[in-house]
Amino acid sequence: MKDDDLVVRAGSEAHGPYALDIGPERAGWAHCALRVLELDPGGSQLLSTEDSEWIVLPLTGGCTVLVDGEIIELHGRAGVFDAVTDFAYVPRDADVQISSGAGGRFALAGAKCGRRLPARYGPAPEVPVELRGSGSCSRQVHNFAAADTFECDRLIAVEVLTPGGNWSSFPPHKHDEHRPGEESELEEIYYFEIAGAGPGYHRVSPSRPGGTDLLAEVRSGDTVLIPDGWHGPSMATPGHDMYYLNVMAGPGAAREWLISDHPDHGWIRTTWDDQPVDPRLPLYTAPEDAVPEDAAPDSESERPR
Rank of each mutant, 00 (worst) to 15 (best):
G133M: 06
L214E: 10
E50M: 03
D4Q: 11
G43C: 01
I268A: 15
G43P: 01
H231N: 12
A14V: 13
F150S: 08
L74E: 10
A157C: 14
H240P: 04
P297N: 08
A10K: 12
R303Y: 10
E38P: 01
T223C: 15
R132A: 11
V277H: 08
T223H: 07
V291G: 11
L131C: 11
Y244Q: 09
S12E: 15
I226A: 03
Y244D: 03
T237D: 08
R77K: 13
G122T: 01
E302C: 12
P128E: 02
D264N: 15
N246Q: 04
L66E: 14
D294L: 12
A10L: 10
Y18F: 15
T223P: 04
A216V: 09
L57S: 05
G266Q: 12
P304S: 12
L66M: 10
L34A: 07
E187L: 09
R116Q: 15
D294M: 01
E177I: 14
S134I: 03
P209I: 09
R179K: 13
P123Y: 04
A295Y: 10
E126Q: 07
G79I: 10
R77M: 07
Y284N: 02
V204Q: 08
P125K: 07
T149K: 03
Y244T: 00
S207R: 09
R219Q: 10
S138F: 07
